[in-house]
Amino acid sequence: MAVLTVKDLYKTFGAGTPRANRVLDNISFDVRGQTFVSIVGPSGCGKSTLLNIISGVETHTSGQISVTSDDGKPARMGYVFQDPRLLPWRSVRKNMLYVQDQADDETNRRVDKYLDMVGLGKHGDFWPGQLSGGMQQRVGIARAFAVEPDLLIMDEPFSHLDAITARALREQLQDIWSQSKKTVVFVTHDVVEAVELSDRIIVLQPGGKIFEDITIDLPRPRRQTDPAVATLQAEVLARLERMKGMAPQVSAAP
């Protein structure tokens, strides 16, 4: 598990140019322990940018951001992207090993364990192109879990999938997550999905400010069909109604 601290975070693309585009505006939050946090907001509000800053692919303009492991070691992170992002010329198993520190026996066993967990134990030697989109996304999820990350980061991992596959994967994700102690930051534009999965929902508004920080206190395991889940989903949706009509503002940097 990990401690993620984000403090006074700003991100402006093209800062100092006439095209300056502020995407994240004074973001602060902490996540620690076995928590499942969702970041929700309309498309273009800066969710992916925030994740890219956490993962180090993108630099922030100002503010602090730190990820530490509970045990004081450098935090390991796992990522699941919107699309599977597999190397098409490597087998499923080699794709899993590609992001591992080592390729020893123990790592191989771990890779097999997580492939089994997502139901692809027999597909290790397949090429990604031989799997369906949903199966490829499961490989992406297994790959992230197999690095045994302290912090797991997921960017709309189910948004490209059909509803039936997405539902099955959401349930699978909850099961794997509750067995393994991990801090999760999960991005989605789907409030319904966020309520089903999360302990806490951070809502971003257009322009990249935090709009609301909602705690979801429901027993697990949750299923999409639970009435309690459905009730809370409706309630959260109603609270977010107020955000409707907010124009995505393109504000220049100060």
């Binding site: 180090g56 796992g78 990522y79 992207f81 992002r85 190397l87 590609y98 992001v99």
Partner: peptide
């Protein structure tokens, strides 16, 4: 770009990146 971002977010070492990503991609 997506595969390069994936590799750098996982901190894949340069040698492996050349061998498993760059070279096959440019085969």
């Amino acid at each position: 770009r997506d595969l390069r971002d994936m590799s750098s977010s996982y901190g894949v070492p340069l040698g492996r990146r050349v061998k498993d990503l760059i070279l096959p991609a440019v085969a």
